[in-house]
């Protein structure tokens, strides 16, 4: 069940009230882990998965994207170092 937009009071990350926000962005995370068996089959780990949403104000969303970009840059450097590219 997703949080209805009308029930929101604030940015769920920084807590800034709606009256101080121009745009709220719903960011959902869908995590699902599977065990890779020796016989080459991905096995469900007894329901080890999670799907959630946070509602970010414009400021939090920007910080979130910056963090992801920094993470992406860091991993790309590692990938190049490993010779995958």
């Amino acid at each position: 069940m997703s949080t209805p937009w009308n029930d929101l009071q604030s940015c769920t990350l920084c807590g800034k009230p709606l009256r101080d926000i121009l745009v709220l962005t719903k960011v959902s995370m869908d995590l699902h882990s599977r065990y890779y068996r020796e016989d080459g089959v991905f096995e469900n780990m007894n329901g080890l998965k999670k799907a959630t949403s946070e509602y970010l104000c414009e400021e939090c969303f920007k910080v979130f994207v910056d963090k992801l970009e920094a993470f992406s840059t860091e991993r790309t450097v590692l990938k190049n170092k490993n010779g995958d590219i």
Binding site: M1, S28, T52, S53
Partner: peptide, 11 residues
């Protein structure tokens, strides 16, 4: 936590 859960349908 349940309010932001968009996965499980059965409570």
């Amino acid at each position: 936590d349940q309010a932001r859960n968009i996965g499980a349908a059965v409570k």
